[in-house]
Design a protein around this nucleic acid. Structure first.
Lengths: 212, 212
DNA sequence: TTTTAACCTGACCAAACGGTCAAGATAAAT
DNA sequence: ATTTATCTTGACCGTTTGGTCAGGTTAAAA
């Protein structure tokens, strides 16, 4: 059509960005639904409304596309992880972290399910990321929790077990969302139901470790 | 070789049973590791040490094999579920159930991971089973828990949320076992570590709902 | 011993897959 | 106006996949 008056190559850049975003969004859904092997480039292309060859134009291989999405998901998770550092009160910090993870499961379930697929498969693409970035983050939180225990602010619980419990419970609402939906008479949890679940999860865990 | 003196067609029956078991065990591993699509009949055959054609002789299609394994896994889970009915004391019942689920995650992780794959995929093969058998079991436990709450034996928590928390936390040790292993300096949890985790999970949840 | 039924398997096939490519269309630079 | 660089896509290709099948072996029945 018309040549936009945009400065420099702004139009071409916009086209690239829009197509990449469209493909990434489609791929995140398809990978989450079918796993790495089960997802086909044809389906990703169809979901993104572009020809299959175009997917390969922007992302050379299926594996490259998969890795890129894993990175994006991890970035989002590290953001949520930051809510662990905002306050000196253990109850406030833990509540904030649990709520942030619950909200992320609700707002971006595909990322969580993609992660679950990846770990179940043996973390072939992400074991290095887990053993460095994620492990460092986790170990530092464990030290914080041990500090709270030593100061008598909470019960003497094994910190890793507590963190795994938070991971598992919050991500369950994304990873096993379909099962929860079936138990809920085949209807997704309403906002009110989810809010109630979130409050209950916070309450049980905080009380469980002696923080209420 | 020699024709065994076995009564009737006992030998042939034994052959069938042994081959089926070998294929089922191999398929459970391979499906858990790679998902439905990612698992190949060739790999299942290789793992079971039988020619590929033999897999199709005993189980017509890949889907039939998958369904059969899903049923087997569910049977085992319903056994664990029965530990919910042994006593009148809520703390004893919940502790027993949580411990049984933790032990199952440790002893039979493939089943749990297979189930996780199936749910993440949208429960295409098992939604009917979940919406009937499993839902009935869950709903009846929820009624039991509501009874305990009404009798003032425990805190007023939303029973489904509590059950999901137990599901999520216990199965996490199977489904995300690889991640836990990486966090544990690339070594699987020792028996002592797992026992400690189990005790902590029980303690946090029981205290969290006012049962200790 | 003969017949029948069940088990076994290498070789094969159509379909689906990830990825390539040549040729055209569009926009930016000269 | 011409050249250059990027974007677009239908057609194509080699490989892998689930599944088939004919022909063989073994064991139970007659």
């Amino acid at each position: 059509m018309s040549t936009k008056p945009a400065v420099n190559g702004a139009h071409k850049a916009a086209i690239r960005q829009e197509n990449e975003e469209q493909i990434l969004a489609a791929a995140e859904r398809v990978f989450a639904d079918f796993g790495f092997k089960g997802a086909t480039t044809a389906r990703i292309a169809e979901t993104a409304n572009v020809p299959k060859a175009n997917v390969h134009y922007y992302f050379n291989t299926k594996e490259a596309l998969y890795r890129r999405i894993m990175e994006d998901v991890c970035d989002h998770w590290l953001e949520a992880a930051m809510t662990f550092d905002n306050s000196a009160d253990p109850a406030v910090i833990l509540r904030g972290y649990i709520e942030a993870k619950m909200d992320l499961s609700r707002a971006r379930p595909y990322g969580s399910r993609l992660w679950a697929h990846e770990i179940i498969r043996g973390a072939k693409f992400s074991s290095e990321y887990i053993s460095t970035t994620v492990k460092n983050w986790l170990d530092s939180r464990v030290i914080v929790i041990r500090g709270w225990i030593d100061e008598g602010k909470m019960d003497d619980v094994e910190p890793y077990t507590l963190m795994y419990m938070i991971f598992a419970t919050t991500q369950h609402y994304a990873d096993f969302g379909r099962q929860i939906e079936i138990f809920n008479n085949d209807k997704p949890l309403s906002d009110a139901q989810f809010a109630e679940a979130k409050e209950n999860v916070v309450r049980i865990i905080l009380k469980g470790v002696g923080l209420s």
